[in-house]
C-alpha cells in the first residue's frame, strides 16, 4: 500500500500552534521532550544505584526540586501521549514499519552510529541548554522567552554551520 502524503506544512503548523496554545492556557507551561528522557535516566539511577544517587550533587538538586517520583512528571506523561499520537498518525497514513532511514551514500552501520552520536550530543546539549527544540525553542517562542528564542537561533545556526561537513551523511556522493 502506498503511504499517504504529509499534511500541508502551514496547516500542520497552525494545528501544532493551537495544541501548544491550549497547553499553555490549560497548564501554564509549554510542550517538551528531552525532560522526559532525563526523568527516565534519573529514575533508572535511583532504582539501580541508590547509593550513588544519594552521593551525587545533581540527583540531590533534582530531588529537592522534584519531591515526587521522577517518573511522575508532566513531561513523562506527555511523551507517552506523543508515542501514542505518532503511532496513531502512522497507522492512519500507513507509515508504521520497521525501517532504517538514511542518506543515499552511506551504509546502515554508519547511519546507526551517526544517529547515536547525534542523539548523545542532542541529549547532552539539551541538558546544558535547559531544553530542546520543543521545550526551549518552540515553547520559548510562544511565550517570548529570551533564552528560548536565543537557544532556537543557535540550534539552527549551528546546524547550518555544520551542514557542509555532514553533507556525506545526507546527500548523494
Amino acid at each position: 500500500m502506498k503511504t499517504k502524503s504529509f499534511m500541508n506544512p502551514y496547516m500542520a503548523g497552525l494545528i501544532l500552534g493551537l495544541v501548544l496554545l491550549s497547553t499553555i492556557y490549560i497548564t501554564g507551561r509549554g510542550l517538551g521532550a528531552s525532560g522526559a528522557v532525563k526523568s527516565v535516566v534519573v529514575a533508572t539511577v535511583k532504582t539501580t544505584a541508590p547509593q550513588h544517587y544519594e552521593d551525587s550533587r545533581f540527583y540531590q538538586e533534582y530531588d529537592k526540586t522534584h519531591p515526587e517520583s521522577p517518573l511522575r512528571s508532566w513531561l513523562v506523561f506527555e511523551v507517552l501521549g506523543v508515542i501514542a499520537g505518532a503511532f496513531l498518525s502512522g497507522l492512519i497514513s500507513d507509515r508504521v514499519a520497521f525501517k532504517l532511514e538514511k542518506g543515499p551514500g552511506i551504509r546502515n552501520r554508519v547511519r546507526i552510529i551517526a544517529a547515536m552520536t547525534g542523539g548523545m550530543l542532542f541529549g547532552f546539549g539539551s541538558q546544558l541548554g535547559r531544553g530542546c527544540t520543543s521545550g526551549a525553542a518552540l515553547s520559548g517562542m510562544a511565550v517570548m522567552s529570551f533564552g528560548g528564542i536565543l537557544t532556537m537561533m543557535v540550534i539552527f545556526g549551528s546546524a547550518y554551520g555544520l551542514a557542509y561537513f555532514a553533507r556525506k551523511l545526507w546527500l548523494k556522493g
Binding site: 510542550l31 528531552s34 547525534g118 550530543l121 527544540t133 547550518y160 554551520g161 555544520l162
Partner: peptide
Amino acid sequence: ALLGGAIMGAGFIIGGFCPGTSV
C-alpha cells in the same frame, strides 16, 4: 543557552532528529 544550543545543532545535523521527533 549558547553552548547548549550549539551542541544541539551539531546533534541535529549528525543524528537527523531532535528529541521530540525521534520519539
